[in-house]
Write a protein that binds this DNA or RNA. Structure first.
Lengths: 377, 377
DNA sequence: CTTGGCACTCACGGCGATGGAGTGCCAGGT
DNA sequence: ACCTGGCACTCCATCGCCGTGAGTGCCAAG
């Protein structure tokens, strides 16, 4: 019934703190004899884990009796009750009302995530599913949209994927095309396979040679540079150019700089909002507020923005999200991309009552795969 | 209390059928003396309108007494009751349970939309809001995303906007760039300001001259054609080309055809899902099903696909949507684009209990403006 | 420190009474 | 013919009540 119980502690790695942190959690605890303290504390933590795990599965306050029965704790319900009282004292669990079972608090979930939950390795089938689902993608857009759907399906939660950021990538090529007299289209191709296009109005029609010349000048000056640097380079271009091109270059540079700098507000893909209704009882009437928050790009960016470090999965629980509407949710996020050159973030938003190990693995795995996919491209 | 009551019948136009249709609805009605029939029928319809309007506002079954009071019907509640009985007999209204007020049926809403609801002209402020909100858009993507948000805000419902379709547009320009040895990027620019890009692997590195030649060949053969025709033209290109280009052209043509034909699955933008919760009581537990349906591109395309004719607002009520999950919703949609050359569709999904006149105006206005914006581009 | 026992506390669900909105029908008026 | 006031009736929604049971806290014994 609790298939994953007792599997904690296997595997190591991402997002999991070492035992060194244990002490950090204990300084505020009650002072008792050394030898006994550890044993005591250990069982209490075991109880906390059991509570979290059972609550995640059953979605109802868990009582001492059920706990002692379903988990091999080796003690009686009465003892469990004592531990629970202590845990409640320390703020890790709480009871919805007198004479009901206990449910974890934000703090309880936090401790669970930091110390108690192991990593659930993905099954072979899951790995294969990820791979086959993503490898059919034809372009960047497709990759992102597939990823977000995949993540939503795997975790059965709301998934968020940030489009590869322009910030860290470089200019690969700039294309200039005259689409109608006096109207140019600039296509900016970056090495993250992202393409931006923009239309520029210039004073008068330009002949093909001039267009070619503009193209050459732009690519020579900006090609291969990081986007931020490219913006600076673009700014001085008109001054350096010959008088024949100056007018047009000024117009082009203006738009380019706008594209490179100002428009670094990022794009975001969202999927799985229907999953919110499944755990609707958890947040009851605040569902509307959550949906509204999720439609705010800014909010989403903040949520998956803080943890852009690929390989490290970050969890924000309840108020830790710093978004009031999401105070009853948890966010699991990570970055994707090659090494230090993070391209963007992705993650999921779900109820605090969440299968953290499973969700963390899924997020990590998808991010990993997408990172490889885009890095190689 | 019922601000819009009695304002029906002002203005004419889009989506509203002429009086000719009146007869069509009546042939199935009871046969009575001519002169009196009209008067009778007219008041009954007035009652139906009153019921719909009140129910839309109050969201609770409306009774005969309240109806006679709040609307200037000039008759007593008892008379209204008789009319209600007749309307129920004909299937336009129903009562949730004995001894409750009446609510409109699908058929009732349908009649309301077809004959009873006038057009609510947009206020000057609304027009200006639309304009100022959309004119800040920097590119196609931005236009679509702004439109969908705008529509969601104006109607306070879930908005759907289809990206301009490739089907009806023409190839404006094809750009070929070598992004790394043996790797080409094709950028396809259409006259709907839509840009598609695709990466093509070719056997061996190509020199710049060949790239330019490829570019010329492609543009000469495909430029200006409708996309469907362009695909055909692309298919025969390799055969007609000189032997030097044949290999590369075959690779390019394959990918181009894929882009032009296969990938006509369209993109869609969605906003305002939070608004669903506001009317959550209307569909109660089916909210999840609705959200799921809305995440299916195919479903959405079907919903706004049938009414691609710009200038005509189409309404589907309840089961008319042909989507089971949406049987308790209504869809108001229209096409946008210049004249016959429809670029795409847009619309909103909301509860059947909806302010049809207001919603229809909003949808029409936004579609109109977006059509101009993209048509002129 | 653990354990079994025990009294206590509440949320929850079922039950019946009450109130009131709304209806259908009928007889009388125009 | 149609409208209208009156009237009996129906049935949903609300509320308070109470029994039930899960779960707790405390205590005394091991």
């Amino acid at each position: 019934m609790i298939p994953r119980s007792g599997r904690h502690g296997t595997g190591g790695g991402q997002g999991r703190r070492g035992p060194a942190d244990l002490a950090g959690y204990m300084v505020s605890g009650p002072v008792v004899t050394e030898g006994v303290r550890d044993v005591l504390e250990e069982r209490r933590l075991e109880v906390l884990r059991a509570i979290v795990e059972d609550f995640v599965i059953g979605n109802e306050p868990v009582g001492s009796k059920a706990l002692a029965e379903r988990h091999a704790l080796g003690v009686s319900p009465a003892t469990v009750r004592n531990d629970m009282a202590a845990l409640e004292e320390d703020g890790y669990i709480t009871q919805p009302h007198t004479s009901a079972g206990r449910i974890p608090t934000d703090k309880g979930y936090r401790l669970f995530v930091d110390r108690l939950s192991g990593v659930r390795p993905l099954s072979r089938a899951e790995r294969r599913a990820i791979q086959s689902f993503l490898e059919g993608a034809v372009d960047l857009d497709d990759v992102v949209r597939r990823s977000v759907r995949l993540l939503a399906q795997l975790t059965r939660q709301v998934a968020v994927v940030q489009y590869p950021s322009l910030t860290t990538s470089r200019v690969r090529h700039i294309e200039v095309v005259q689409i109608s007299p006096g109207r140019l289209l600039i296509v900016l191709i970056t090495d993250a396979a992202r393409v931006e296009q923009r239309v520029v109005d210039v004073a008068e029609p330009i002949d093909e040679d001039t267009v070619a010349e503009l193209r050459t000048v732009l690519n020579r000056a900006l090609g291969g540079r990081r986007l931020a640097d490219a913006a600076e380079a673009a700014a001085v271009l008109p001054d350096e150019a010959g008088p024949g091109l100056r007018t047009q270059l000024t117009a082009l540079a203006t738009v380019l700089i706008e594209t490179l700098v100002e428009r670094q507000e990022e794009r975001i893909a969202l999927a799985g909002t229907a999953n919110l209704t499944r755990s609707a009882l958890d947040f009851s009437d605040s569902l509307r507020a959550i949906l509204e928050a999720l439609e705010e790009q800014v909010v989403l960016l903040k949520l998956i923005g803080w943890a852009r470090e690929p390989g490290t999965v970050t969890v924000r629980i309840g108020r830790e999200t710093d978004v009031d509407a999401l105070r009853s949710t948890a966010v699991v996020a990570t970055g994707y991309g090659r090494g230090a050159a993070a391209l963007g973030g992705m993650g999921v938003v779900g109820p605090m009552r969440m299968d953290y190990p499973g969700t963390m693995s899924a997020v990590w795995a998808v991010a990993n795969y997408v990172g490889e996919l885009l890095g190689a491209d």
